[in-house]
Design a protein around this nucleic acid. Structure first.
Ligand SMILES: [Zn+2]
Ligand SMILES: [Zn+2]
Ligand SMILES: [Zn+2]
Ligand SMILES: [Zn+2]
Lengths: 139, 139
DNA sequence: TGGCAGTTGAGAATCATTGTCAAATCATCT
DNA sequence: AGATGATTTGACAATGATTCTCAACTGCCA
């Protein structure tokens, strides 16, 4: 996950309805512990008898990520994958085979990145830090 | 950049010719200090009177990255961008506006990621760590 | 100079992601 | 309930980056 959060959203007036589709996506994510692509989440919902358009899955995932409800990162192939995580800022140790994830925290790393960036005069920071590997179950 | 390097390449017999196209791509990279997309590098070569097919630019960049000659990372939009860097393993502080880059090293971070991963039984590791921001010149 | 593996480029093909827009839903107010 | 207006959805088109295809071309070396 990145460290910058989109907060403003000038049109803070708009209602966000908890529709059947959005509940389905949220439920699918809640039932998972791994990072999954939009396509996989879409398929999962279908397999469970649900029916949500792929575009809606993308829109919902984007909204959830925007709201900080889920984390999105790009796997080694550049594809976006999502997962519902804890609230606190953290990073991930992800199995590149099955997506199994471990949330990790590194206060020292956070401080280090800020210091480095500031030192070089960079502002409006964000950072990505993900560890990929093969989990014990995937040999 | 990631920490794993592709080494084997079973067909280690193949010759790698220093063609006009490959030289053009290498030269373009040498004349840059920022991370750029394949398209940008392609355009740059064209502007300087050169002519190299976009597919060849992609192929050459992939080969150079494979050989460790250049670093490839994905910007916040998920696009792949390349840059010729120093040999040692390092990470980057990148301006999300102009691509201006500062190479950074963090031995402590390297140790930390390895420890965390090992601790959870993950093998065959690699990691990504990039810091994005707005450089001094881009306000 | 011939032969050939390695290379190239134009264009098609993939594929993830986003845009379009009419139809469907929902919330609210008579 | 019925009307009304905003929000949401989904089928499908459109993008855009990256890869694939394959016939033509080239660098190398006997
Ligand atoms: Zn696994
Ligand atoms: Zn962090
Ligand atoms: Zn800049
Ligand atoms: Zn590192």
């Amino acid at each position: 996950m990145t460290s910058t959060e989109a907060q403003d959203d000038t049109a803070a007036r708009s209602t966000v309805r908890p529709t059947r589709q959005r509940r389905a996506v949220a439920a699918a994510l809640a039932g998972l512990d791994d990072f999954r692509s939009a396509q996989e989440i879409h398929d999962l919902i279908s397999q469970q008898g649900g029916s949500v358009g792929l575009a809606t899955v993308y829109r919902t995932l984007a909204a959830l990520a925007e709201a900080g409800e889920v984390d999105m990162l790009r796997n080694e192939d550049g594809e976006a994958v999502w997962r519902s995580c804890s609230d606190a800022h953290h990073h991930h140790l992800v199995c590149r085979t099955c997506g199994a994830t471990v949330e990790v925290e590194g206060p020292a790393v956070e401080r280090w990145t800020s210091a480095i960036a500031r030192e070089h005069g960079y502002a409006d920071l964000s950072h990505t830090l993900e560890i990929f590997g093969t989990c014990p179950r995937c040999v």
